[in-house]
Amino acid sequence: MIINHPLLGPRDSQEFTYLGDMSLINRPDWEADDAVDQFHEYLYLRDNPAGEHKELWFHEQGDRSWLVVTRNTLTHDITKVEIAKDIARQMGRSK
């Protein structure tokens, strides 16, 4: 698979390490009353869709950026690649 890095252009997926579902960006609040339940859901439960999947890839052998890759799990087609930092900021992280 070729991942079209927003900054570096098309790169072989072998340069990357795969983490998993993009929802892993949204780490729950450890002080919440139901933190145990929230962390259970965050750490262990997955949508695991057959089709479009937004997922985190780390450019380990490149610029060390985290990317959010939109990829179809039925065809391996990659339709969108974004910098994870931008998405996390859009979702209100690290303001």
Binding site: Y44, R46, P49, A50
Partner: peptide, 18 residues
């Protein structure tokens, strides 16, 4: 292999990735 697809029919998330 397809457990999440069946359990997705009853809106359950599983501790599983395919």
């Amino acid at each position: 292999g397809n457990s999440s697809r069946i359990m997705g029919m009853v809106n359950r998330k599983l501790p599983i990735e395919s």
